[in-house]
Write a protein that binds this DNA or RNA. Structure first.
Length: 598
DNA sequence: AAAAAAG
């Protein structure tokens, strides 16, 4: 029995309240006399007075704020639905009302040791971090430096998180201070926890008015992500972080029956994790209202704001009933953040802090990148060679998990089929497959049943698949940022990984940015690639500045911040880890607490 | 031009 299991058994024996006495969720597992803070809902007044433009804000505030009932207990007890411990079928119908313990890892048959979630912290030690913005709260060094509350602390222990990762060290204090944030940080570096912990803790501590309408869900926090699988993954993690806190997390995404999601929503939700399409659907059906949103997080924010998604995101964030920036707290995350996207994103933010955490692998070479010149017609046999070699080098002749990216959905189907008939157990994932097929593919890959996964860009971002040893860019993407996201599927949690790219004339537009990127990451750049790069060097569009980071604060650009050209760090930038901190100049008066790395 | 996201 694992440690987590024994904990859960002990809790089930000792920790659960007696079934006869109802205990509101936010009071469970707390010392009995713990009067909720008198904080009340200061934001409510501001809603109506300062931002009269949206919705029916004061209805919420004035009608409910005087009542003893707060939001959370209203959910579980008074709502009349989904009720407390005894509301259903005589009270011993567990499963429903008893919270499933998310720590008895359902995926424990995954290839490899129990260590799968452990993070190699040594790999993070010398990662550079850069912040800019006014009055940046200083980072913390340990979880005990931050007061997230006992229940969340307990979940941190259950997750076996020993110390915060760089992105957590910086993000958590910023978020607890109520500040908006734009953060460049690779997923797999603990980003989800970085925004979930403060949200959960904030919801537990705050007092919120009761939801005004029974059949409509009024989440307090919204987390948006660009793919269904990523939303699921965030949901699973958030469930762990909120275990036994009374904070309810619900996920909503397309391709799955909506009815079950509707039922979940009706039973109450504090944190809603969703993909944009399904959320818009729910909003149009008036089954979800955003008027009580206090926290908004966009994961893979640069994708969420690119051409395909932007209208939907604007609709959700700006054209429904969500409180405006300054009233809600907004946090944007991505491994890459192009300037144009930053400009768009700043519409959603208020006096935000920009945070850039250096790429994992930039200094420690966690991901070995190789580029090989392969003609279109030779790609398949070349891939075959790689897979054969890999199998022979592997332990017990087992195929290491290999993720193969292709450009098109058709191409994914074709390559999967070809690999299978040639004796390689492969599966494929892309947006034309049913959600069932997608989830099945991901599962057989994770468990090693099909150790080769052929994927389109649906799998490029955010997915945390432990033990991916090799990412093959069978077809290179056109955008270097997509390349960065793809290779980020390996070398995760501080482990090493290999990324191989097949390059030919069709990719010449990427030559320059690819060779620059590899150079920055101390990778060996083949001479022929440098020649390609030199030939097509006029392309400014695909070039990126910033070196070790996925982006830098566009507010520090002279074109944005005129007059600041002589003061490069005029935005109040702080460099840590000993990089170039000489330029630091607090032009915002109190701007900036130097964020010392160690 | 392709991919994702609603049904």
């Amino acid at each position: 029995m694992s440690w987590a299991d024994s904990v859960s058994v002990a809790e089930n024996l000792a920790g659960a309240p007696p079934k006869s006495a109802y205990v509101p969720p936010h009071l469970r597992n707390r010392p009995s006399a713990d009067p909720p803070a008198q904080a009340s809902y200061a934001g409510t007044a501001a809603f109506g007075n300062d931002h009269g433009g949206y919705g029916v804000p004061n209805v919420v505030g004035s009608r409910w704020s005087g009542q003893r009932n707060e939001y959370q207990s209203g959910f579980a007890g008074g709502g009349g639905r989904g009720g407390g411990w005894n509301s259903r079928s005589g009270g011993w119908d567990r499963g429903r009302d008893r919270e499933v313990n998310p720590f008895k890892d359902a995926d424990s048959e995954v290839v490899g040791e129990q260590e799968s979630s452990a993070i190699n912290f040594d790999a993070y030690e010398d990662i550079p971090v850069e912040t800019s913005g006014e009055n940046v709260p200083p980072p913390v060094n340990t979880f005990s430096d931050i007061d997230l509350g006992e229940a969340v602390d307990e979940n941190i222990r259950r997750c076996k998180y020993v110390k915060p990762t760089p992105v957590q060290r910086h993000t958590i204090p910023i978020s607890l201070a109520g500040r908006d944030l734009m953060a460049c940080a690779q997923t797999g570096s603990g980003k989800t926890a970085a925004f979930c912990f403060p949200i959960i803790s904030g919801i537990m501590r705050g007092q919120f008015p009761r939801p005004p309408r029974p059949r409509m869900a009024f989440p307090l926090a919204l987390i948006l992500s660009p793919t269904r699988e990523l939303s699921c993954q965030i949901h699973d993690e958030a469930k762990k972080f909120s275990y036994q806190t009374g904070v309810k997390v619900v996920v909503a995404y397309g391709g799955a029956p909506i009815n079950q999601q509707l039922r979940e929503l009706e039973r109450g939700v504090h944190i809603l994790v969703a993909t944009p399409g399904r959320l818009v659907d729910l909003l149009e059906r008036a089954r979800v209202s955003l008027q009580m949103i206090r926290y908004l997080a966009l994961d893979e924010a640069d994708r969420m704001l690119d051409m395909g998604f932007e209208p939907q995101i604007r609709k959700i964030v700006q054209q429904m009933d969500m409180p405006p920036p300054g009233v809600r707290q907004t946090m944007l995350f991505s491994a890459t953040f192009p300037k144009e996207i930053q400009r768009l994103a700043s519409d959603f933010l208020s006096n935000y802090i920009f945070l850039a955490v250096g790429r994992v692998g930039s200094s420690t070479d966690l991901i070995v990148q190789r580029v090989e010149y392969v003609q279109e017609t030779d790609k398949r046999s070349h891939l075959m060679d790689l897979l054969h070699a890999q199998k022979e080098n592997g332990v017990h002749g087992k195929q290491a998990l290999t993720l193969v990216f292709v450009e098109t959905k058709k191409g994914a189907d074709a390559l999967e089929h070809w690999l299978c008939i040639n004796g390689f157990p492969a599966t494929a994932i892309h947006g034309d497959r049913t959600q069932q097929e997608r989830e099945h593919a991901l599962r057989s890959f994770k468990t090693g049943k099909a150790p080769i996964l052929v994927a389109t860009d649906v799998a490029a971002r955010g997915l945390d698949i432990p033990h991916v040893a090799h990412v093959v860019n069978f077809d290179l993407p056109n955008d270097i940022d997509d390349y960065v996201h793809r290779i980020g599927r390996t070398g995760r949690a501080g482990k090493t990984g290999l990324a191989t790219a097949f390059f030919n004339e069709n990719n010449s537009s990427l030559a320059r940015s690819l060779s620059d990127l590899m150079q920055e990451a101390n990778q060996e750049v083949p001479a022929w690639l440098s020649r390609f790069a030199a030939r097509s060097s006029y392309g400014g569009k695909n070039r990126r500045g910033g070196g070790r980071f996925g982006g830098r604060d566009f507010r520090r650009d002279s074109s944005y911040n005129r007059g600041a050209t002589t003061d490069y760090y005029g935005g109040g930038a702080n460099m840590s880890s000993g990089y170039a901190s000489g330029g630091y100049n607090a032009s915002y008066g109190a701007a900036g607490v130097t964020s010392a790395w160690d």
